[in-house]
Simulated assay, not measured.
Amino acid sequence: MCVGEDDPQVSRCQGRLTHRHGRWWVANNGRLPLRFPSRLLFTGEEPLPLETGYTPLFVRGSRDREHLLEVFVSGPETERPVALPGDVTRPPRVWVLTDEEKLAVVVLGQRYLLHEPRPQPLTWRQTAAQLAESRPGEAWSEKRVEHLVNRVRTMLSRDGVPWLTREEVGEPVGNALNDHLIRALMMSTTLVPPDLALIDAA
Rank of each mutant, 00 (worst) to 15 (best):
P193H: 05
P119L: 04
H147M: 12
Q120E: 12
W24Q: 03
V145R: 02
R39H: 15
P85K: 09
V88K: 13
E51H: 09
E5T: 12
E133R: 11
C13E: 15
L103N: 07
T189W: 10
R111M: 04
H147N: 12
T154F: 00
F42V: 00
G137L: 08
E45C: 05
T127K: 05
P85N: 09
W140C: 07
E45L: 02
N178T: 01
R135Y: 00
D179T: 15
L34T: 03
H147E: 15
V152T: 07
L108I: 01
F72S: 05
G86R: 11
G75S: 13
C2P: 13
V169P: 01
E51W: 00
D7M: 08
L198R: 11
F36Y: 13
D200W: 03
L48C: 13
L103R: 11
D99P: 05
G44T: 04
R135E: 14
R65N: 13
Q110W: 01
L198Q: 05
M186P: 04
D200T: 08
L17T: 06
S62T: 07
P37L: 05
E133M: 05
M1P: 08
K102C: 11
V59I: 15
E5A: 12
L122D: 10
L50V: 07
G53I: 10
H21Y: 10
Q14K: 04
D87I: 00
E146L: 09
N29K: 08
G86P: 04
A176E: 13
F36I: 03
P81A: 08
S11N: 08
V107M: 09
R39W: 09
D179Y: 08
P194R: 02
H19Y: 14
V106N: 01
V71M: 03
E101C: 10
L48D: 05
V3S: 06
Q14M: 11
P37H: 06
P56C: 02
V149L: 12
A184M: 02
R93Q: 15
A27R: 05
H115K: 10
R93V: 14
L185W: 02
A104M: 08
E51K: 08
P91V: 08
Y112D: 10
L69R: 06
M1D: 11
E167A: 14
D159K: 08
S141D: 10
A201V: 06
G53Y: 06
G44C: 07
L108A: 02
Q120D: 03
R166K: 14
F58L: 14
G61T: 08
T127W: 03
A27E: 15
D179L: 11
L181C: 04
R65A: 13
L34E: 00
R166Y: 07
A27S: 15
V3P: 01
D6Y: 11
D64M: 07
C13S: 12
V107Y: 00
V107E: 03
R166E: 15
V96L: 09
R125Y: 05
T18D: 15
V73E: 09
R60V: 06
A139P: 00
V3M: 10
P76M: 01
P8S: 07
V106T: 13
A132V: 00
L17S: 06
Y54R: 12
V192W: 02
G30R: 04
H180I: 00
A104R: 04
E51I: 00
P76H: 05
R12L: 12
N178V: 00
L156N: 05
P91H: 08
R35V: 00
H21K: 12
Q130T: 11
W25P: 01
Q126P: 01
G137S: 07
L181V: 04
D195Y: 03
V88E: 15
